[in-house]
Amino acid sequence: MGDDSRSIVVPERLYKTVTVFSTLFAIVTVVGGFVALDAATKSASAKASEVSVPFAVLGIGLIAAGGLVYAFASRFRARGMATDKNSDDQQPNNG
């Protein structure tokens, strides 16, 4: 697990930048994407012919972009942080 996923250790301050801004970006795009999708399909009540295709594609695109950025950001980590709890570099301290 986690062997093939790339992980890059960055300075702590940069790690904060990555977390804060990628999360912010993901929230805004995913919520915005759903709003767009809702508008395109009149809250899923529109007939197939009435759906605004560009808006629907925009919505799905935004949701995907948000997810992508969020997932991509997870490869950066600060020193001492484990990607999963079975990693060697994290000792259990009985939290």
């Binding site: 960055v10 300075p11 940069l14 930048t17 804060v20 801004f21």
Partner: peptide
């Protein structure tokens, strides 16, 4: 400088550069 010396793919360094750019301006952190 850190981003340059570290061995990163093009996407990764672009990603970080954009976020640092935002961080310099918005200063949320």
């Amino acid at each position: 400088a850190w981003i340059k010396e570290k061995d990163l793919t093009a996407i990764e360094s672009t990603f970080l550069t954009v976020l640092v750019w935002l961080d310099r301006r918005l200063r949320i952190v």
